[in-house]
């Protein structure tokens, strides 16, 4: 079982990250994925989050308790959710937006300037898709093929190409970072 939290501020497409991941895993990777999100005024503000529990068996307890993976795209979200991350977890941040302290325990840290990459591709709105690609590459909890199958209906069809490009950009960067980490 893997517990994941995507976090950032309202308007970054954080909920969408959970939705795409959950859909990809449960419809195309043949596993179970339960996605929940925070609602209400707080969900629109500075620290919004979506959570996904992935499992080989049916997910019983619907919420995350001690996530193994935290994706953070804002400083406030990072400050709020980092303490919950497991000591052996995976921390993924947009390093233009989040200043991380040295990781606790054996937490592995991966950084990407996802919003800047998105701007270079022409629209900062697809920063979440760059992050999704990066997350897919470094976490390996979902296949990139499944993510691409999951996109229709969750990103506007007229911007599909741009979204795929953003995903690929993040994914490739993730592979590079992994390579560097190995060598």
């Amino acid at each position: 079982m893997t517990e994941i939290r995507f976090s950032g501020f309202g308007g970054q497409g954080i909920i969408r990250l959970g939705l795409i991941t959950g859909k990809a895993v449960s419809l195309y990777d043949n596993k179970f994925a339960t996605m929940t999100q925070s609602f209400g005024p707080e969900a629109r503000g500075s620290a919004c989050s979506s959570q996904v529990v992935i499992s080989e068996e049916r997910v019983l307890y619907p919420y995350i308790t001690r996530p193994e993976i935290l994706v953070s795209m804002s400083q406030e979200a990072y400050d709020k959710y980092e303490p919950d991350l497991r000591e052996d977890g995976l921390l993924i941040i947009d390093n233009d937006l989040v200043k991380s302290t040295a990781p606790r325990g054996s937490i592995r840290l991966f950084s990407i300037p996802s919003t800047r990459f998105a701007e270079e591709l022409g629209n900062r709105i697809i920063g979440n898709l760059v992050m999704l690609g990066f997350f897919t590459a470094v976490s390996k909890v979902v296949s990139p093929e499944a993510i691409k199958k999951a996109l229709p209906g969750l990103v506007p069809s007229r911007f599909m190409d741009l979204n795929v490009k953003a995903f690929d950009k993040g994914y490739d960067y993730g592979l590079e970072v992994l390579d560097k980490a190995k060598s």
Binding site: G22, S26, L27, A33, T34, M35, T36, V59
Partner: peptide, 9 residues
């Protein structure tokens, strides 16, 4: 609320 707002297959 939990089931109502929870996404699953």
């Amino acid at each position: 609320e939990c089931v109502g707002h929870m996404h699953e297959k």
